[in-house]
């Protein structure tokens, strides 16, 4: 084991962004990290490198250059077509051990978190999860990664002093990609992939990628909690009257009332909506984490002590099943013209 302190940190150079691809397309979070990575790499005086694993991914390398990378490393191999935890961990660990980057950022997606968690132990280094703010420490030039705890009321600023690369997984939707620059050029290098079938102990038998509705960017949204009793009819009616999308709290997904893509919260979607109407949700910290970037929050709950009211602009104490039918009548005739 690599005991903290043994490491010669100055051997580690380069600012890397791992770009996750799915079905041959780069996920937005990778482009967002290249945007932020550009700024931080310049501040640290590091080269910004995009790393992409997959099969037939040359075009993705060019795309990463347009979005700000100085250079790209491509690991192109039939066993890397889709995410496989064993194959991806081995290939990433090999590249990192050979080239010794100083920083490695990854998206805090399901696959990104799986891979990052293994790499940190395999490489003996520090990993910070679900980061929402990144900066460079002026004194030490170390990466400072801020993590919201407990519903965002507290931010812990974390650094890795001993251990390289300094690793963080970053939540999707936090940073903005750069405008693509079509004339930007850079080196695209193919790395050697040493991978055998026997390296793979966990096999993907079936994969179903459902193109998901992105409720995060809905202008107006009605979010149902358990207080609706899973009765989506009233919710849908209100959504129709307001030309709004619909979302739900996690327990409604768990009982099968709505698909996972409609879940709002820390393990679901963060809303950037102008209007969010929350119906019968208690306001658990995991849920309200998804409301932080919304403009106006209106909440309806029969319990006047419900924590959701601390997170709302307009608070309505009352029973959904009494108020909504009357509200729908009231709204009739005021229905907007789009």
């Amino acid at each position: 084991m690599n005991v903290p302190g043994e490491l010669q940190a100055d051997l580690y150079k380069g600012f890397w962004v791992y770009m996750e691809q799915e079905e041959g397309r780069l996920l937005p979070v990778g482009l967002e990290l290249l945007g932020k990575g550009r700024e931080l790499a310049d501040e640290m005086g590091e080269v910004l490198t995009a790393v992409i694993l997959g099969q037939d991914i040359a075009a993705l390398g060019e795309e990463a250059l347009r979005y700000g990378a100085d250079e790209v490393l491509l690991a192109d191999h039939p066993l890397l077509t889709g995410f496989n935890t064993d194959a991806y961990t081995k290939v990433m660990a090999d590249i990192i051990e050979a080239r010794k980057p100083n920083v490695l950022l990854m998206g805090a997606t399901f696959n990104g978190r799986d891979l990052a968690g293994r790499l940190a132990v395999r490489l003996s280094t520090g990993l910070t999860a679900h980061v929402t703010r990144l900066e460079v420490d002026k004194e030490s030039s170390l990466l400072l990664s801020a993590v919201p705890g407990f519903g965002g009321s507290i931010l812990a600023v974390i650094k890795t002093e001993f251990g390289r690369p300094q690793m963080s997984t970053v939540s999707p939707g936090i940073f903005k990609p750069l405008e693509p620059d079509d004339v930007r050029r850079g080196k695209v290098e193919r790395v050697d992939v040493r991978l055998r079938q026997s390296d793979i102990r966990c096999r993907v038998l079936e994969r179903e990628v459902v193109p998901a509705e992105d409720i995060g960017s809905a202008e107006r949204i009605i979010v149902a909690g358990m207080g609706t009793g899973g009765d989506m009819k009233l919710v849908d009616d209100l959504a129709a009257a307001l030309h709004a999308s619909t979302g739900v709290t996690r327990p409604l997904v768990d009982i099968g009332v709505a698909p996972r893509e409609k879940q709002v919260g820390s393990t679901g979607v963060s809303l950037r909506s102008k209007l969010v109407v929350v119906l019968g949700a208690s306001g658990a910290s995991h849920f309200v984490a998804g409301l932080r970037d919304a403009d106006t929050v209106i909440a309806l709950n029969k319990d006047k002590e419900a924590p959701i009211f601390d997170e709302s602009d307009v608070c309505v104490v009352g029973d959904i099943f009494e108020i909504l039918p009357r509200l729908l009548e009231e709204l009739e005739g005021k229905v907007m013209v789009v």
């Binding site: 910070t128 420490d137 931010l155 650094k159 002093e161």
Partner: peptide, 14 residues
């Protein structure tokens, strides 16, 4: 532990 808490700050309250 490799990660160190540099500081704790209050999150920007909404």
């Amino acid at each position: 532990s490799y990660t160190i808490v540099h500081e704790l700050v209050e999150g920007e309250p909404v």
